[in-house]
Design a protein around this nucleic acid. Structure first.
Length: 471
RNA sequence: GCCCCCAUCGUCUAGAGGCCUAGGACACAUCCCUUUCACGGAUGCGACACGGGUUCGAAUCCCGUUGGGGGUACCA
C-alpha cells in the first residue's frame, strides 16, 4: 500500500519545534517509501485559530525544506463532511445528544475528585426518553453529540515506535463529545478526535505519526474507526522534545517556534539535522547529514522511545559545522539579511566575500556581532584593549605612516611590511600584533589580524583608526 | 487521584543474551597548532537507576521498586 502520512498542526500559535519535528519524521518516512506527505490545518478551534499562524506554519515548513505533496487542507472548510459523519453515527445509534450543562459536568467531576475517582462523564444522557429530551429542549438547553464508548473493553494497537499498547475503555473518560450543536439545531463544529478520524479516513492516511501526547487519543480514535466500519491506519507515537528540566518543551525555554530559531541564526539544514538526531540515529552512526540522506535510511524501528532533552550546545556545534563547509557565496547570501538588519551595509561584493571567508570558520550562528567592527567608522574599544592601544599610540601612528607609504594590497605584503617595521622598531613581530589588534579592532581577540587589517585597509579604515587612538 | 509511556556518561545516542574492559557525538579538562579568540588535531574525565528472577552467561528477557514524562475537556 502506498504510504500516505500527514502533519496536522493547529494554527493557534507559530510553528512549534515539536510540530516541526513531527513533520520532519513524517516527511522522512514519506520520502523513504515514495509516499505522499500531506498538510492539514486543524482550525476547528475558532477562538484561538488565527490566519497569521497559518502563514507562519507555511513559511516555517518551507524554510525547513519540508515540502508537502497535498494540501493545505483546512478543517473549517470541510464542515459538511463532519456533519455527514455525525449523522451516520447518530443514525446507527452509536452517538446521541447529551444535554448536560457545563455546571452539571463540573459538579460531577468535583464529586468524583472528592471520592478520589478519576473524573469522567457518567454517560447519564445515553438513554434519554423522548419526554426527557423534550423537557431539556423546552428548557432551551443546547446539546452536544456524544459518541458511545463501550465498556468494559480493551483497545490494543501495535505502535510503530513503541510496540503493543493496551488501553481499557473504562479509562477513556466516558462517552466522548464529538460535535457541538448550533442554535438552530444543526450539527456544528466537530471536536478534535472526531475531525481527525473523519479526515484521516477520507484522506487515506496509512500511518498516523504524532507526538506521544496523543497516545490516549489513539484509543478513542480507533473506536471511531470501528464505528465507521473502517480499518484504522497504523499509529506511531514519537517521544517528546524536552527542555533542560526534562519537561515538555514550551515557551520560556528560550525558543520554541521555528521562526525564532531562524532569527537566532541557525541554518535550516543544520536545524533539521539536529532535530532528526533528537530521537533517531542512522545505522552507520553518522551525525552530520542532510535530511534527504536520512530519508534513505529512515525507519521507525530506530526511533527512540524516551524523550530527548533539547541541547543548545549541540545545535550550535552542528550549525557551526554547516557554516564551515558552506561556500562563501552561500554563506554571504545567508548572513547578509542579518547584517542588513543590523544596519551593516556595503555594496562591494568581493570585499564582502573576503570578509565572510575570514569570519566563516569562527561562526556558530549567523550573526552580525563579529562583523560589525569591519563596517564601523569608529572603533568601540574594550577597556583593556583601549589601555593597550593608548600605551602604543605613537607606535601605531608610525605604523600607519608606513602603511600609507607602502600601501600593501595582499596579506603577504602586509606581513612583510609588519616584519620590516618591527625590525626597524627593534621589537619582535609578535609584540606588535597585540597593540595593533587593539588599536584596529578594539579588542584582544578576533579573526586573523593580517587579513582583518587588509579588509579594513581596502576600505580606507585602517590608517585613520591607527592614527586616531583616543589619548 | 486514576490511566498510559519511558529509563545507558551532564546531554544526544550505539547496543536485538556472549563481539561490552559498554562504542560514538556534544559539553568539560589538558596538550598540540597559533599573534589572540575560534577552527583543527590528540589525550583524558564520564553511564547500563535499584532489587529480585530466567540463563552456563543479562545493559539487553521477565517481575517489582524508584524516578521521570504524558494524558485525564463542549483545546488541538
Amino acid at each position: 500500500m502506498t504510504v500516505r502520512v500527514r502533519i496536522a498542526p493547529s494554527p493557534t500559535g507559530n510553528l512549534h519545534i515539536g510540530t516541526a519535528r513531527t513533520a520532519l519524521f513524517n516527511w522522512l518516512y514519506a520520502r523513504r517509501h515514495g509516499g505522499t506527505f500531506i498538510l492539514r490545518i486543524e482550525d476547528t478551534d475558532r477562538e484561538r485559530s488565527r490566519e497569521e499562524y497559518v502563514q507562519n506554519i507555511l513559511t516555517g515548513l518551507q524554510w525547513l525544506g519540508l515540502n508537502f505533496d497535498e494540501g493545505p487542507f483546512f478543517q473549517t472548510q470541510r464542515l459538511s463532511q463532519y456533519q455527514a459523519a455525525v449523522e451516520t453515527l447518530l443514525a446507527r445509534g452509536l452517538a446521541y445528544l447529551c444535554y448536560c450543562s457545563e455546571a452539571e459536568l463540573e459538579a460531577l467531576r468535583q464529586s468524583q475528585r472528592a471520592q478520589k475517582l478519576a473524573p469522567r462523564y457518567d454517560n447519564r444522557h445515553r438513554h434519554l426518553t423522548p419526554e426527557q429530551r423534550a423537557a431539556y429542549e423546552a428548557e432551551g438547553r443546547r446539546p452536544v453529540v456524544r459518541f458511545r464508548i463501550e465498556e468494559p473493553r480493551e483497545v490494543v494497537w501495535h505502535d510503530l515506535v513503541r510496540g503493543e499498547i493496551r488501553w481499557q475503555t473504562q479509562d477513556l473518560g466516558g462517552d466522548m463529545v464529538i460535535a457541538r450543536i448550533e442554535a438552530d439545531g444543526a450539527i456544528g463544529l466537530p471536536l478534535y478526535n472526531f475531525a481527525v478520524v473523519v479526515d484521516d479516513l477520507e484522506m487515506g492516511i496509512t500511518q498516523v505519526v504524532r507526538g506521544e501526547d496523543h497516545i490516549a487519543n489513539t484509543a478513542k480514535q480507533i473506536l471511531l474507526y470501528e464505528a465507521f466500519g473502517a480499518t484504522p491506519p497504523a499509529f506511531g507515537h514519537l517521544p517528546l522534545i524536552l527542555n533542560a528540566q526534562g519537561a515538555k518543551i514550551s515557551k520560556r525555554d528560550g525558543a520554541t517556534s521555528v521562526d525564532e530559531f531562524r532569527q537566532m541564526g541557525f541554518l535550516p539544514q543544520a536545524f533539521t539535522n539536529y532535530m532528526v538526531l533528537l530521537g533517531w540515529s542512522p545505522p552507520d552512526g553518522q551525525e552530520l547529514f542532510a535530511i534527504e540522506q536520512a530519508a534513505q535510511q529512515f525507519d521507525f524501528d530506530r526511533v527512540n522511545k524516551a524523550g530527548a532533552r533539547f541541547d543548545w550546545d549541540k545545535l550550535d556545534w552542528i550549525n557551526g559545522q554547516y557554516l564551515r563547509v558552506l561556500p562563501p557565496a552561500d554563506l554571504l547570501a545567508a548572513i547578509l539579511p542579518f547584517w542588513q538588519a543590523a544596519g551593516l551595509a556595503d555594496d562591494d561584493g568581493p570585499w564582502l566575500l573576503d570578509l565572510v571567508t575570514l569570519l566563516g570558520p569562527g561562526l556558530t550562528r549567523l550573526t552580525a556581532a563579529v562583523a560589525a567592527v569591519y563596517f564601523a567608522d569608529t572603533v568601540t574599544f574594550e577597556d583593556e584593549a583601549l589601555a593597550i592601544a593608548r600605551d602604543h599610540r605613537h607606535l601605531l601612528a608610525d605604523f600607519a605612516q608606513v602603511l600609507a607609504a607602502a600601501n600593501p594590497q595582499r596579506v603577504e605584503d602586509a606581513d612583510a611590511l609588519l616584519k620590516s617595521f618591527a625590525k626597524e622598531q627593534g621589537v619582535k613581530k609578535g609584540a606588535l600584533m597585540r597593540p595593533l589588534r587593539c588599536g584596529l579592532m578594539g579588542s584582544l581577540h578576533g579573526p586573523d589580524l593580517l587579513q582583518s587589517l587588509m579588509l579594513l585597509h581596502r576600505k580606507g579604515k585602517a590608517i585613520p583608526r591607527l592614527q586616531g587612538i583616543p589619548a
